[in-house]
């Protein structure tokens, strides 16, 4: 176990907060309890990795924090707003206006061009995308020449870059990334992680990434470890060695 710093929390409210989250599925022998009274804060403007072995509850945590799934008990906040207990319509609006998503695969609507995919949240009724920002981000991500292409005409790395651009252009409060490198080769995966890092450093975004890849997590500002639905570790500026050791400890 390692120490926790609380320095920045005094200055600004956390971007995302979980308070005593409980969640279970099924009953009897098949019962699973992915969240057991989990409480955790995620600071704004930082890159946080959520790690843990399979079944540790890291995916369920992300679903609940992103308003995709409802907990049995406890609270989840995006900024100061509690999202637990909100009706589906408002949750949808919060996802659209305040949350960006990058998934492992199948990130893009296949029948839309890269540009349409990037601008989709805005066209669904969110804030109108800033033209200048759009041009800057797509330029920075090297997508300018690929904007008219459809997803199947793009490589896996390019597709993930489009997903990153979509998340950045709508300037959300938080970007959730779910195993964003899981489907990519080493080099492309590193490139996508670099982009997430840049999102935090250059665009002052908050990124929460769920992963089980120690290399990926070592690029984050902070790594939280989950085991059996509870917090099992919290590392600031983690390096791969410490992370691997911590992971070994929780899986033991």
């Amino acid at each position: 176990m390692t120490t926790t710093t609380t320095g920045s929390r005094a200055l600004t409210a956390p971007a995302v907060r979980a308070v005593a989250l409980e969640k279970s599925y099924g009953d009897g022998d098949a019962a699973v309890r992915p969240l057991r009274g989990l409480s955790i804060d995620f600071d704004a403007g930082r890159f946080t990795a959520v790690m843990g072995p399979s079944g540790s509850g890291k995916s369920t945590l992300m679903h609940v924090l992103a308003g995709l799934d409802a907990p049995d008990a406890g609270q989840a906040f995006i900024g100061r707003r509690e999202i637990t207990g909100l009706p589906e319509k408002q949750l949808t609006r919060i996802r659209r206006d305040h949350i960006g998503f990058i998934f492992q695969a199948y990130n893009l609507v296949p029948s839309m061009t890269a540009e349409e995919n990037i601008l989709l949240p805005g066209r669904l009724g969110g804030a109108r995308a800033d033209r200048g920002l759009f041009r800057e981000i797509t330029g920075r991500l090297g997508l300018s020449a690929r904007l008219g292409h459809r997803p199947f005409e793009l490589s896996g790395g390019q597709q993930q870059r489009v997903a990153v651009a979509r998340a950045l252009v709508s300037r959300p409060d938080v970007i959730f990334a779910d195993e964003p490198t899981g489907n990519l080769d080493q080099a492309t995966g590193a490139e996508v992680l670099g982009l997430l890092r840049a999102a935090v450093d250059e665009y002052d975004q908050t990124v929460i990434m769920v992963t089980h890849d120690v290399q990926a997590a070592s690029l984050a500002d902070r790594a939280v470890l989950l085991a059996d639905g509870a917090l099992a570790g919290d590392l600031q500026a983690p390096d791969a060695g410490r992370l691997a050791a911590a992971m070994l400890e929780v899986t033991r």
Partner: peptide, 13 residues
């Protein structure tokens, strides 16, 4: 899959 993606990134029902 596409419908689910759309719902996730904020398309209302």
């Amino acid at each position: 899959r596409t419908l689910a993606l759309l719902r996730a990134i904020g398309a209302a029902r």
